[in-house]
Design a protein around this nucleic acid. Structure first.
Lengths: 115, 115
DNA sequence: TATAATACATAAATATCTTATGCATAAAAT
DNA sequence: ATTTTATGCATAAGATATTTATGTATTATA
């Protein structure tokens, strides 16, 4: 997704948070939602998304239901009970991460001027 | 560094920001500074740090000066002119990243309750 | 009627980081 | 006195996540 290396490692957290919000979503829907919420800045690639969804399912954090929309199939994912607990943990980790990054970045450029 | 996957991709940004602040630092000093600024939460491992420093140097973003402190040697790194420009870019990317992650995470749990 | 959008999938290559290991000096603890 | 911890560098193997490339198929738009 996108060019910036910073997004590496954040994909599953994003997926789980969106599923927590929306109850259930299918893969393509997730990519579109992320694009919309970030004003087109974050584009999740399919090569990253689908393996991530399969892994989360394999870990027991997601359940899947296949449905047909017209002639096209959609795989709707939703959080399992364990997935809901894990989502809470990951969001807490994300908050910590952001807090830590801000501690590292928001310090003064010229520390010798501080008093 | 640490357990959370979220930090992946953020190491070089952290290094460059610290060098921007402090003028020049040696590897071990960077690990200690990061630990201090994050209250012990973020521990940069040597296996990540040294290759990252070498890579940044190879890309022309860092210059190195070897000095002896007593009988032990230290490699002091500082930003090149290009490195300073790149630091500005990376910090802007970090801000964007944090903003986007907050957009994704700070949305309501129950969107149907919004009005 | 060709192109773009929708919808899934996987495999190879790349990048980053963890874990493990190695060497050496200096300080602190037993 | 001597072991452990801290300081200071380094690299290599393995794990993991993501990019890039490719594939298939349906539906909507230009």
């Amino acid at each position: 997704m996108k060019n910036s290396q910073l997004y590496k490692g954040s994909l599953t957290t994003i997926i789980m948070k969106l599923l927590e919000e929306n109850g259930r979503m299918y893969g393509y829907e997730i990519t579109q939602k992320v694009k919309a919420l970030t004003n087109g800045e974050l584009n999740i690639t399919e090569g990253a998304l689908y393996p991530a969804l399969h892994k989360l399912e394999g870990e027991g954090f997601l359940d899947v239901e296949v449905e047909k929309a017209g002639n096209r199939l959609r795989k709707y994912y939703k959080l399992t009970e364990n997935g809901q607990k894990e989502t809470v943990n990951r969001l807490a980790e994300l908050e910590e991460f952001i807090k830590n990054m801000q501690s590292l970045v928001n310090s003064k450029i010229n520390p010798e001027v501080q008093f």
